[in-house]
Design a protein around this nucleic acid. Sequence first.
DNA 1: TGACAAAAACTAATTGTATTAGTTATAATG
DNA 2: CATTATAACTAATACAATTAGTTTTTGTCA
Lengths: 192, 192
Amino acid sequence: MARTGLDTDMVIHRAAQMVNEVGLENITLKMLADDLGVKSPSLYNHIGGLEDLKMQLMIYGWKKMEQRIIQSVIGISGYDAIRAGCHAFYEYATENPGLFNAMLWYNKFLNTETMEATSGLFSVLFKVTSSLNISEENCNHIIRTLRGFLEGFSLLVNNEAFGNPISIAESFELSLNVLIEGIKTLEEKIEE
Amino acid sequence: MARTGLDTDMVIHRAAQMVNEVGLENITLKMLADDLGVKSPSLYNHIGGLEDLKMQLMIYGWKKMEQRIIQSVIGISGYDAIRAGCHAFYEYATENPGLFNAMLWYNKFLNTETMEATSGLFSVLFKVTSSLNISEENCNHIIRTLRGFLEGFSLLVNNEAFGNPISIAESFELSLNVLIEGIKTLEEKIEE
DNA sequence: TGACAAAAACTAATTGTATTAGTTATAATG
DNA sequence: CATTATAACTAATACAATTAGTTTTTGTCA
């Protein structure tokens, strides 16, 4: 009866915490409503339903990660910036496993809004790679390479899917080295 | 009443087709039961429930992919074999989007059986990389690199998550070039 | 062959969640 | 102070997963 004073941002924000605690597949509107001190139908005043909530979590997560990555590359350029951005991605993804699942599963082509969820983030990476002597088209390819690797590797870590006992941190570092050395071979020679 | 003559393999096999048609998140036991000409509780004679079914789909998918990859590297060695194996992975993943989702989401560390789902597949890759002049430990790291990239890139393709209009096939080829050139820098010099 | 046991189907019932419809109370606005 | 929009509520619906208990078939063994 007493008005709780919820708004959409509060719901999303609380759901983002909760999804990291219980996992994307286990979150329910009832659970979220209980936590917010409200009955579950009341949530429909702020979100469109469970699917909509997960979609919004996806967008929320990518925006947050974008901020982290922008912070991480301030004052750095070239391969060091790539390295720093990749580390920021990996850290955010593994610190927020539930949210990261939403980011992966719901990042589908559906409409302009969902499509733009990641565009800001990867335009940051584009700016970074553009400072290298690599053609624009190849920069776009490289971003896809990095994106694929970062998303897949982070998912595997979150799922504890690496059976081997060898260090995951070292695997990540070596992977970045491999990728960066590979990218260097795409640099165009400059006439002297 | 009349016995349909189902067994676990038939259920899994049919579910594998269905999951590619309707998507992992939309498959229901009722739908599967209807399709198999049976009531949904009857499925419990063959599977442990919906979660168990998805787990079994995960294992089924990895085994099938393993076979495809083994076929693809027959008679090839070195970097050509890596290339061929990666192509086989990518093709299987994109030809079976629903099943591949199960392979990603349910490939978590839970018990020995789920852990071993992918061990055969990656021991094939290990044999391939072992023929290079690279330390065993680095081979293990490289496999993780490839695994991360392949899983992430395939997922992005299946989700149509690449906004850019540039060719995805070219992105994949360039990515493999980047990875292989990067891996080459790990080769240990041989005394002459 | 014929009784018996195991397996595989069934029906009925339970539970839990999302979602919708319709109602009431609060807050904001003129 | 009256009115209106909003945000909560209760009640009801629909659907799927799952469990319990029953029936029927199939295969086996004396």
